[in-house]
């Protein structure tokens, strides 16, 4: 069975932010909400690497565990999604998330964090596939069309890989063998409790 994952090959990532704007474009994500972001480590120094990060769709997702209203669910493709109808915007998932994925629109003056928004792996939400309401709440549903997340599909250097975990791990493994170096599958240990052995 397919187990969807993300893998960012930091030796390819050049912080071009295509993943970020592709996401904004595909889902019309508003200003201030960053479902995906690129973090640069060791900035400006030798050893600098950039990693594109969004929801990793963890195995046994911490966000789902800590959610006080159980608004999360995991799809058959192991994509972690949530229902904005049930979410109350408490912010606990952000505290539990190892990757800073959950985002909250600011509504009202204080405390009224809106309903959480995060990467859906381009898989929409609980509404019926391709419905307007699904698009408005969660963005488009590419997975249901047989397409992969646009961030990965548009990645300028093909650093960001999306798809079945075993397949992308194999792609990454082959790359590392071919080129002779690799800084690893960032976040995999934390998200999936496994790593890509080479």
């Amino acid at each position: 069975m397919a187990r969807m994952k993300f893998l960012c090959d930091a030796d390819r990532c050049i912080e071009c932010n295509a993943c970020v704007t592709a996401c904004k474009n595909e889902h019309e994500v508003p200003w201030g909400i960053n479902r995906r972001r690129v973090v640069t480590l060791n900035d400006g120094k030798p050893g600098e690497r950039s990693v594109s990060m969004a929801c990793m769709h963890c195995t046994d997702a911490p966000c789902a565990a800590v959610c006080p209203v159980n608004c999360f669910y995991t799809t058959a493709d192991a994509v972690v999604l949530h229902s904005k109808d049930i979410c109350i915007g408490c912010g606990y998932c952000f505290y539990a998330c190892p990757f800073g994925a959950p985002q909250y629109p600011k509504v009202g003056n204080f405390g009224s964090r809106g309903k959480m928004d995060k990467c859906t792996y381009c898989a929409g939400g609980p509404e019926s596939d391709f419905s307007t309401i699904e698009y408005e709440k969660y963005g488009s549903n590419r997975l249901a069309e047989g397409k992969l997340p646009l961030c990965a599909e548009m990645c300028s250097t093909k650093a960001l890989l999306a798809g079945d975990g075993d397949m992308i791990a194999e792609i990454y493994k082959q790359r590392v063998i071919k080129r002779g170096y690799g800084s690893g599958a960032w976040g995999w240990k934390t998200a999936y409790r496994e790593t890509v052995a080479i």
Partner: peptide, 14 residues
């Protein structure tokens, strides 16, 4: 192709 359709034992679909 990277998406094989399968039924996850514990996973909930929508």
């Amino acid at each position: 192709p990277a998406v094989a359709i399968g039924e996850a034992p514990k996973a909930l679909d929508r």
